[in-house]
Structures are given as structure tokens and as C-alpha cells.
């Protein structure tokens, strides 16, 4: 790695001040599992590293009046082990578990996974399906926006130098929405997604209500599948409808061919994984209902 300066931020205010002062010359170190690789390959050559990995205030996972807050520095391991997330958002536990291996999950953070902004990020689809919001701090104050607006293109977010992603919020009204995450990689461990999918919907008298489908690794960023969602809206829940939604979503995907898989194969995977994610969200809803009835 090329030489750089290093400051360990004392709190969020300190981190924001440092980022404001150094602007584009600074890089933020959260978990480091992506950043250190990029520094070693000289993808970035920052003058200074602002280490935020000790900011415990950004590791909190808690429910507030407006919904579920996941601190940007919660590691994938923290998410897997959080009783709150296991209970309220099990799709996110599945997504976190599918990332890398134990060593990467112990260091890598949710915020880092989102701002690295690779198309195959496993944290994205379930959060997009639940219409997550993100909070960004800067010297100008805090602002909140839909997670989808963070993603611009591969490895490019809408964050400006000086911005710091501080937390991820699932709005209260979406917390009871059954959701699921499905991924297909070439191996069971340490594999990037060929395709990953998030799906969520309310159940209204046996019909799909507000269905949301998010597709990863098949477009420059995580995308929604609006045609498949429109097809499902108000429709009676059935295996056939789920399969058809999968087929429609496959036409909305814009995958590339690379050494991992061809575009055609990825489109086929979209159809299968959307169907599975919808079925898995439904099974989750049924299990929850049974639990409440018991």
C-alpha cells in the first residue's frame, strides 16, 4: 500500500469535521474489507484515512418511533446475531449470512457494503424491497433519502466528499411486511451473487398488497422490477402468480455476461429466485401468524 495519513475518529462529529476538512483527499475506513483491497491495488490513493471503525454510536441496532435503525457500522456478523433483526427482519439475516465468510462478516459493515456499491452487493435487495431509507451526515447537517437514491452506477454512489452514511432505517409501516432474500452463487461460501433477489409484500385477504421485488447483480445497481410488482398487485397469492412474476422480472433484468455466468443464465436465475423469494416471504408470513396464534 502507498503511504497515507491516518486518523481514528473520536465520534461522529469528529469524523464529519475531518471529512469536511479533507474532502476528496480522504477515504473512510469502516470495516476495511473492501477498502484495504482497493488500497493495495491502488484503486484509491487517499492522502488520509479517516478510521471510523471505533464509533460505537454507529453500531447500534434499535427500534425507534419511526422504525428500525441499523447503524452503518453494524457488521454483517452483528446483523446475523441481533435478536431484533432475527425477529423483525429475518431476510436481512439471510442476506448478511450470505456475504463472504466469517472473517469478512466480522469486519465488514452494512454501510460499507452499501457505499462500495457493487451491483452484486448482498445487503441491497432485501433493504430495497422494504424501501429502506439512509441517513447521511455532513458538515451541512443530516439528511435522509431512499436507499435507491444512494446507488448511481457500479462503485459510484450519490454521496459527495465529506458525506458520511450513518444509518439505515426501515420505516415502521414496513416492519411487519413479510420479506425474503434469495441468492445464487457458484459456491456456498465466499461467492459473489450471480443473482440475488429481495421480495416483500403484505397479504390482504389472500391477495398481494404493495409487492416489492428487488434484483441484484443483473443491472448497474440493485433495481426494482416494477412490471412484476404491477402484475402481482391485488392478485390472488398462488404459486402460478409467483412463477409468472419471476418470468416478468426476468424481462426487466439487464444482466451482463462475464466469466461467472452468461446474461441468459442470469435471466433464468432471476425467474427462479424471484419465485423462491416470494414463496419464502409467504412461508415466513404463515409461520409468523402461527406463532402469534399460539
Amino acid at each position: 500500500m502507498k503511504a497515507f495519513g491516518y486518523v481514528s475518529a473520536k465520534d461522529v462529529a469528529h469524523a464529519v469535521a475531518l471529512l469536511g476538512e479533507h474532502g476528496a483527499k480522504a477515504k473512510i475506513l469502516a470495516g476495511g474489507t473492501d477498502l484495504l483491497v482497493e488500497l493495495k491495488h491502488a484503486v484509491h490513493n487517499p492522502e488520509i484515512i479517516v478510521d471510523i471503525s471505533r464509533l460505537s454510536e454507529l453500531k447500534t441496532i434499535a427500534v425507534a418511533d419511526d422504525g428500525l435503525h441499523i447503524g452503518a457500522l453494524a457488521t454483517h456478523g452483528d446483523i446475523m446475531n441481533s435478536s431484533i433483526i432475527r425477529d423483525m427482519f429475518p431476510a436481512m439475516v439471510d442476506a448478511a449470512h450470505s456475504i463472504g465468510a466469517a472473517q469478512t462478516r466480522n469486519l465488514g459493515t452494512l454501510g460499507g457494503n452499501l457505499v462500495t456499491c457493487v451491483p452484486s452487493m448482498d445487503s441491497g435487495p432485501a433493504l430495497i424491497a422494504l424501501e429502506a431509507l439512509v441517513t447521511v451526515a455532513s458538515s451541512a447537517g443530516r439528511r435522509q433519502m431512499p436507499l435507491g437514491e444512494l446507488f448511481v452506477s457500479p462503485r459510484k454512489t450519490s454521496l459527495k466528499p465529506g458525506d458520511l452514511l450513518v444509518d439505515i432505517v426501515i420505516a415502521k409501516q414496513n416492519l411487519s411486511k413479510p420479506a425474503a432474500f434469495e441468492k445464487f452463487g457458484l459456491r456456498k461460501g465466499q461467492a459473489l451473487a450471480l443473482v440475488n433477489v429481495g421480495a416483500a409484500f403484505f397479504i390482504d385477504k389472500g391477495n398481494f398488497l404493495c409487492p416489492r421485488i428487488a434484483l441484484g447483480a443483473v443491472a448497474p445497481t440493485v433495481i426494482r422490477a416494477p412490471k412484476a410488482e404491477a402484475y402481482l398487485e391485488g392478485r390472488k397469492i398462488s404459486a402460478e402468480a409467483m412463477a409468472e412474476a419471476g418470468r416478468i422480472a426476468a424481462t426487466e433484468a439487464k444482466p451482463i455476461s462475464d466469466f461467472r455466468a452468461s446474461a441468459d443464465y442470469r435471466r433464468d436465475l432471476v425467474a427462479v429466485l424471484v419465485k423462491r423469494a416470494l414463496a419464502s416471504a409467504q412461508a415466513r408470513a404463515a409461520a409468523k401468524q402461527k406463532e402469534l396464534a399460539a
Binding site: Y6, L29, G32, L36, Q103, T104, N106, L107
Partner: peptide, 8 residues
């Protein structure tokens, strides 16, 4: 467990 190559 962490990868010490990815930690400063």
C-alpha cells in the same frame, strides 16, 4: 476471527 491482512 478476522483476516489480519485486511485490518490496519
Amino acid at each position: 476471527a478476522v483476516n489480519s491482512c485486511l485490518m490496519l
